[in-house]
Design a protein around this nucleic acid. Structure first.
Lengths: 197, 197, 197, 197
DNA sequence: CACTAATCGAGACGGTACGTCGCGTCTTGTG
DNA sequence: CACAAGACGCGACGTACCGTCTCGATTAGTG
């Protein structure tokens, strides 16, 4: 006894075909790569995935939600390891952010996605959640840096993270193609300097 | 002599009604304020301006160009005065950027505009040009700061500007409503620290 | 022996809930009355009956068959009594036809049903069968009338019946609301005249 | 002067391409012939006509209106000539009605059209108007017949016409294929008999 | 008492059509 | 030429209905 509700919820009706979900996500990634954001149409995605628009709308409230999930699956902090010296750790954050947002798929999806955020509050929340892990890790790391005397005591993780994300965003939207590894090093060094006590 | 070309161009046929241009720009600003980016459709703009779509397309190659001009007229560096100490000047740059991009009209127009940039190279160029004056002024100021010993010698104006713009952009797109004056001060202070020799 | 087949057919598996059949028929009649033919969708019928689409399709090959059975149950000649003089009997046929086809439910169902007849041969057959009893009775009556000298010898029951049905049909489809009792009397009189020797 | 309104109405905007109207009507007729009522889809019609759905909706409020105009253009009484003896004239009415409603296109369109009549009051009115000429002519002819002693004085043109239309309708919807010339003669004779004084 | 087989509810599935909207172009008549 | 008006081709949108299917859970009769 106990989880009657769960059982009812799980058991009701024909279960969704899990392959359709994957096929739709893959179709979005294909179309983003081949034709950019404009090519990602509800009909085109469904077609490419070998299914129908209705199946798509059953899973996501609108196209941008699906695109978001397809372009930025999982947690951004996934392979972020903080533990070296502060400069190295900040480089990791900046590089990770750049790699994620500037990947072919990410770069194709992001501008359009950001434009739709205003119309879909839940989409906005979902995007913010992606940065949750990075923020927590960075906050911990910064507190340690303050204790170790590597950072001044007013340093704020949210400001640092927003500067990093913002730098990538501005680069991606305004001057794409200049965000090479040298740029990562320069921005990381700048952030490191800004934290000095 | 002199402006033959102008005369030929101007002289042929009925001259354009200059009021239409202004009415269209005003209509875009009204619609942005009232209904956001989604409300700014060609038909709605022309209607609100009391004119027609054809008149609009005679003046701008496409809607985003008109929106750009309506939301961000003139040069961004317009009322930027650099000459005080470095911290104050940087605060001016950050505040000016925030004020421009986060004005009700700017905030409504920017996400959509950035999404369209990929499709209209000339629109991208036009947007970049807006920052030209700020960049030049900041570069001058930074060189002086290096000479004065206020900034380290590897400081780059483009990186600083991109960090400032990026910070505003990230704030606007991801956490709007948090970009108050205290935020401006914190970010400006951070940038100033990052420039210390 | 005798009903082995019946027993085998009946015995296997869980028996059908007889209340569902009635609930579906009643649901169709409700929806026809409330919202007309367009309101009678498979999902709406199943919902209203408190059951599901699958249960419906287990009982009828398609929606029109169910609608037919709901709107025109049983034999049309049910309460047709022929035996008075010819004029009275013809009035009975015309009135009966009108009453059946022009009842609120019948009138709502008929136009749609007739449109579907082309797509469902078995539905066509089922509809024709409804008139079988009336036709047989009318044919008998007409033969007697010929013998009695009340009708000319070339009178054909099928033509008379088609004229009667057609008159109701044309009235229902083209000028509904005019098929009152006076109309029944006029049409009956006309048919009676046409049969005179 | 005087028709300012007309001039304004006519002169405003780009005029409709008259070829599109014809192409759409022809497309409906083609599709009716080839695939029946079910094949007449908004998209299919527009496609076949080499135009778009929007152009169609600009001309007719809905598909049934277009189908009606395509299947039953002009006045039904077009080539109806009344003036011979009553029996011949009635045969002309019955035959004309049958020919119009039972033509391949008419037969394909009619059942569906009649089903939609309930949903579109204006469509109903348009269909009724088609019979206006026939009714007027028949009324005149009947009055003359009464004066000549060929018809009894209570004969009503509307009843006769409804009987004729109804006979064709019932034949078309219930027993198509039996409405040959012999049937026309039988029904006409029946109607003639029914009018005898 | 298990076993079998059809039913029940719920709801996803592929397919197809709907009517609307926006874009950027075009074609008129009138200044 | 510009201008108002509005039709044009194009293509996407989100919804609705159809008839089928796949589940897990009943609900009889049978072995």
């Amino acid at each position: 006894m106990g989880n009657d509700i769960d059982e009812v919820v799980r058991g009701a009706g024909r279960p969704r075909d899990p392959r359709i979900e994957q096929a739709l996500l893959a179709a979005v990634r294909d179309l983003l790569t081949e034709g950019g954001y404009a090519a990602v149409t509800v009909a085109a995605v469904a077609d490419r995935a070998g299914t129908t628009k209705a199946a798509l709308y059953r899973r996501w409230p609108a196209l941008p939600h699906l695109i978001h999930e397809a372009a930025f699956p999982g947690e951004l902090a996934q392979d972020l390891v903080l533990g070296a010296d502060l400069a190295t750790d900040l480089t990791g954050v900046v590089r990770g952010t750049r790699d994620t947002l500037c990947s072919p798929i990410g770069a194709a999806a992001l501008p359009g996605l950001l434009a739709e955020v205003g119309a879909w509050p839940d989409l906005h929340a979902a995007m913010m959640r992606r940065f949750g892990g990075v923020f927590a890790a960075l906050e911990d790391r910064l507190q340690k840096a303050v204790r170790d005397g590597d950072a001044h005591s007013e340093a704020r993780a949210d400001d640092v993270l927003r500067l990093a994300i913002g730098a990538v965003l501005a680069g991606l939207l305004l001057t794409p193609g200049e965000l090479d590894d040298a740029w990562v090093d320069r921005i990381s060094a700048t952030l490191t300097r800004s934290l000095r006590p």
